[in-house]
């Protein structure tokens, strides 16, 4: 029998091919890193159970292929996601530019309530950096999305990123289920308010 858990959150990683989605997930789920690049075929997922506020949360994290030819398959998974990580590579400007497209993709295919987060990965490779942190932050603010620079290789901010996203979902859950008891439960989500509330530990990267 599986371990018991309180909530199941479904997360999704998207972003251009080669930005390190799989590595982020690998780091988060197995705390390991592999330098060889193996392109993800279609989709994959990993599980990790975390604890937040005394609740056991099982994270099912879907990893998607960045390559366009898998787009059909990968977009099919947007719908089921409660949280989506948008990942770009700080050493690859193109991947950063494409974040806009990925966001558009989310808007088109994902649930409107989905929590989002932008990650600039490979921040250990500062010498090859093409996208400044400020640029990333600016983009995130424009969209009202949280942002973190991460490194799967050096294990920087990976835990923080997933925990933040999970916490945001948790916050939304509690607000939805506890606060509006008689009004419609599916009211618009104020992401900004949400942002400031819980994750003070990383607010500095945001503002």
């Amino acid at each position: 029998m599986a371990k018991t858990y309180d909530y199941l959150f479904k997360l999704l990683l998207i972003g251009d091919s080669g930005v390190g989605k799989t590595c982020l997930l690998f780091r988060f789920s197995e705390d390991a890193f592999n330098t060889t690049f193996i392109s993800t075929i279609g989709i994959d997922f990993k599980i990790r159970t975390i604890e937040l506020d005394g609740k056991k949360i099982k994270l099912q994290i879907w990893d998607t292929a960045g390559q366009e030819r898998f787009r059909t398959i990968t977009t099919a998974y947007y719908r089921g996601a409660m949280g989506i990580m948008l990942v770009y590579d700080i050493t690859n400007e193109k991947s950063f530019d494409n974040i806009k497209n990925w966001i558009r993709n989310i808007e088109e295919h994902a649930s409107s309530d989905v929590e989002r987060m932008i990650l600039g990965n490979k921040c250990d490779m500062n010498e090859k950096r093409q996208v400044s942190k400020e640029k990333g932050e600016k983009l995130a603010i424009d969209y009202g999305i949280k942002f973190l620079e991460t490194s799967a290789k050096s294990s920087i901010n990976v835990e923080e990123a997933f925990f933040t996203l999970a916490r945001d979902i948790m916050t939304k859950l509690n607000r939805k289920m506890n606060d509006n008891s008689s009004s419609g439960a599916g009211g618009p989500v104020k992401i900004t308010e949400n942002r400031s509330k819980k994750s003070s530990f990383f607010r500095c990267t945001l503002l």
Binding site: D6, Y7, K172, M177
Partner: peptide
């Protein structure tokens, strides 16, 4: 009831269970 909605994911999908798995190809 609220707890069930939370735990099942129904809170997010506004209904039980929102599994969105594509079918095998």
């Amino acid at each position: 009831q609220r707890e069930v909605w939370k735990r099942s994911g129904a809170w997010f999908f506004k209904g039980l269970p929102k599994q969105v798995l594509p079918q095998p190809m």
